[in-house]
Structure formats: structure tokens, C-alpha cells
Design a protein around this nucleic acid. Sequence first.
DNA 1: ACGATTGATAGGCTTTCGCTATGGATCTTC
DNA 2: GAAGATCCATAGCGAAAGCCTATCAATCGT
Lengths: 298, 298
Amino acid sequence: MDLRQVRYFIAVAEERSFTLAARRLNLSQPPLSQHIQALEAELGTPLLYRTSRKVELTQAGEAMLLRGRAILQQVKSAEDEVRSIGAGLVGTLDLGATGSILRGPLADLLAAYRQVAPLVKMTVHEQAPALQIAALLSRTTNISLIRGVPSERDLTSRLAWREEVVLAVPRTHPLAKRKRVALSELASEDHVVLNPDSSDFARYVQSCCVDAGFLPKVSQQVVDAQSIPSLIAAGFGVALVPQSIARFTTSDIAFRPIRPSPPAADVFLVFRQDETSMVVHNFIKLALRYLGQRKKVG
Amino acid sequence: MDLRQVRYFIAVAEERSFTLAARRLNLSQPPLSQHIQALEAELGTPLLYRTSRKVELTQAGEAMLLRGRAILQQVKSAEDEVRSIGAGLVGTLDLGATGSILRGPLADLLAAYRQVAPLVKMTVHEQAPALQIAALLSRTTNISLIRGVPSERDLTSRLAWREEVVLAVPRTHPLAKRKRVALSELASEDHVVLNPDSSDFARYVQSCCVDAGFLPKVSQQVVDAQSIPSLIAAGFGVALVPQSIARFTTSDIAFRPIRPSPPAADVFLVFRQDETSMVVHNFIKLALRYLGQRKKVG
DNA sequence: ACGATTGATAGGCTTTCGCTATGGATCTTC
DNA sequence: GAAGATCCATAGCGAAAGCCTATCAATCGT
């Protein structure tokens, strides 16, 4: 049995006429007759009862009509689904990110992506950078957003955005009144920092301070970047944080730019080099285009 | 999309190899590649991720594999169903019959047919002969079993069986002691008869009596042949009944053959001349063959 | 590094497919 | 009631497709 024969038969069955069906199919009548004959021969039974004046369905023909319609419908549905998946409009997308990135600029990107591909099931896995690399390699996730490029050969990295690092101080702190602050001025301050073992960002900030000639004096070390603002407000000291953090804190805290030579935290899109999913490719394409429009985020 | 392409794709997807799939399909490898390419082109997306060493499915390919299997399964199921209907193995069969025929030899025939075609849904419509003719013409039923041939031009009749008419008398009746009875001896008896308006059989019996030189004296007229035995047992008189009735009555009643020249009730299979259903044709064929083996029934 | 294996491509041949022309049968119309 | 119209089936021919062998490019394993 052939889909063409099914289509042809349905046309004849619906029109109750070879001639009209042939017209509907943009076909001449003889090949239509032949195809129906071939179908009947294959099924070993007449499907149509022909008097030379009208065409009626046999019981087998009635069944064939119902089944044929169902088959064509299923074929069309399959085509639509495969096309959608191929276009990256449906499917799944597993993202890896740390809390500070997730609650920073990534949120806007996710919202933008959801608008273009609302049927894609997105899952964000919030975990430490090292685990994200492992998740990518084991195909648990498709894309990670991390600070710094991994060295694995199977992974590709693209700069997603560059975020200026700013100083967070309590409103009451003397530096809060300054328009800008030099990095070296922070040598004598107490610092709230992330755990450098689990955070590329913490290591990066530390290296910046070393470049500026001092090792930051740590008053408090935290695991979750979310905790930093409340500790600053509570007077534990100052902190160097990504600019995007400023969006979510209260007036107890002031943010001041570092000048001159502000440190910049680079966030990278990381994905497998052999990634085939169009969902992933679409997301990456959108991300780079979307972020390209606004070099600085926050 | 073409069923052949679907079959080919499934083979490649399952074998994870064009070469092996081509072997399985009794096909050389190049046309297989081309068909897959055509399918991918039509769906606008790659289904397979080929490195020159192995073949993997893309997400679209995974979906295509599942959907393709479902489609092929549905096609096969449709073919089986249509074939079965075409062979008359499944479908519906609506029979018309009167109670006396139904509970007589027809029961055996139905049992025999059910053994041959257990999937056919049989329905027996028990109704008066005139209604049966109307039901046949309106396509409510496919086959009727009636005594006598109808005159309608669109209907065909075939002799199904010939049943001898026998005399039913109470055990205590003088005729019960006789080995055989002549029809003319019944001229002075009281008769229990069916309503001649609704029964070909009643009319036939009446005409036999007239041929024998008398008009039966009616002591009781009934609508349903089932009532006759109990009336005979109750002493209402005698009755001329189809031989098959004898099967279901008690020892209160005696049945005696009519000799010489026993009347015979002819039962006909009646069906539409333009009947197309193989179920119906099979039933008729079986019936004539089955009944041919035993000219007398009961 | 070299042979073996895999999928893609090219060219030729056979089969299939669709078209026009025509035939046989039935219904309609004058 | 006969002629025309209409319908499906058949015949014959040209075009398109499907399949084959031969070959290429890339990769893997020894």
C-alpha cells in the first residue's frame, strides 16, 4: 500500500466518481482507475462497486476510507512534529548556571527565548561551575553560562556578555559618598567574598586585587552570592560584585564604579561542539544576537 | 512523505548504518542515501547525524522514528482489516426470520456459520414475512428466510430447504395411534392454525387442505407458531406444522406423517440481487452447501 | 601510514507513472 | 426509440523515478 494510492482512493470515495476525483487531484482519469485497481488487487478485494453510472463503496471500501483518512492525518501530524523539532520550535533545553548569573542578565535572555520558542521545555540547573562542565559532557545539560572558558576539547565557548565589576558598600560607609573608587583604595577594607574554590568569579576578583597590589582582607566568606547584599547592609564590609546584582538590592547599599580600569567579569556560553539540537543552536544564535545589541548588561 | 521513505528511514535508524540497512532492505546503498536525503529535504531538517564512521539520530530523527513506526503499524492494521472485510471474515450480517424458522433448522445453520466466521456480528430480526421483505429492500437486513418466493424484482431467492409438514395431535387423540394419516381424514377435525394474513405457511397449509377436498374447521387461530403445541396439548384440536417443530415439544403431543403425498413447506433464502457484502455471499454459499448435504431437515 | 570501511556522488538502465486516444455501457433527450 | 452525452476501462507512448554499478572523500583501526 502506498500513500498516493490512499490519497487517490479517498478522493474517489469522497467524490463518488473517478472523473471528479481525477479533476480534484489534478490528474487524468485513466491513471486514477489504474491506481485504484492496483490497490484493490493488493488488498485482494474490491473497494468500489462500479456501475457505469455511479460509484459506491463496498464494506471493505468503507473501512478503507476511514482507515485511510486516519493514516493521512497521522502522516501529516508526524510531518508537522518532525518539522517543528527540526526548526527548533519544540524540544527540550537544559541550561546550567550559577545563581548569580541566573538571577542576573540570564533572566532577560530566557524571557526573550521563551517568546520565540514557547513550546520548548526549558529547565535551568543551578549548580557550581565544575558540575556544569560535567553535566555538559554527560549530556545532562545542553548549554552552560559560566565565568571563564573551560579547557575541555569537546566544548565550545562564546563570550555572552561582559559585566563590569562594581563596589558594594553600606550607605553609611565613607566610600558611598564617592563618585568613583580606585581598586587600590580597597586594600584596607574588610571584604565579603565568595568561596574561591567554587567560584571563578571570586578567583577573578582576587586576581584583580592582587594586580592592584593587595590581597583582600576577608571578613566573611559565603557560598551563595545571594547572601552578599545582606551582609554588606549589616556592615560586614565591602564587596566587589557583578553590576547586575545592583538590580535586586535595597537602598541600604550603594554601588560605586571602580575607576580607573574597572574589572570586567566575562560570562561565556558553553556548549558541546557536536551539539545537533536545533533548539540549542537557536538559543545560542538568539543569545549572541540578543546580547550583541547591549554589550553591557545589568 | 512516502511510505517507502518511512520504511527506509526506519531501517537506517534501527541499524544505525546505511550499509546494513540497505542489506536488510535488499537494496544497494546509494538509492537508500538518496531516499533519506529526499525525506530530509522534504521535512526541511536532518534526521540523521552522519560522521563517516557512524550514524546517529537527531532529535527530529528520534521523533520521525517513533512516528514512522506508528504509521507503518497503522497501515498494516488497515490492510489487515480491509482484507478481512473483503474476505467476509468480519462485518455485520442482519438476518430476517420468523420464530418458527429461527427456532427450527436455522439455528444449526447459524451455529455452522459462526464457526467459519466468528468475527461477524450476526443479528437476527424476528418479524413477519411482509416486514422482512421491506427490511431487505430498505437494506435493514441482508438475508431473509421465508416460506415462499417474493415477487420483488430486486430480490433473489434460493431454495434453502424443504420441510415435510406433519400432523400434531394430542397423545389421547385417536389419530395418535395411527402410523400415518391421510390429509382428507382431517376434514372433520378441529384445527389450530396460524393467522393466514401474516403467514405464508398458513396459507400454504390451507391450500393443501383445499386440494384435499375440504376447508379446515378452525378452532383457534394464533399469531405465534410457538403457541401451537400448548394448544394442541390442551385439546383444542389438531394442527399441521413443520416437522422441525417436533424437536421442542413434550410427550403430551404426537406427530404423525401425512401419507400419501405429504405436503412440503419450502423455505427460501432471499437477498438483494445487488448485494455486495462478502459476508452475505459467504453466508449464502455456506448455507446452500451446508443444506445441500441434508435435503430434509428437522 | 596504509588498508578497510562508510556514506555521498555520477552515469546508465529498467520500471513506473501519467497522458492522449479510444472502447463499451448506460442514462438522458428529443 | 434512436442519437448524444457521460462514465469507467483499456491501449500505447513519452517522461520521470527508482535502482544498479562504479567511484570518490573521509575516517578508523592496525
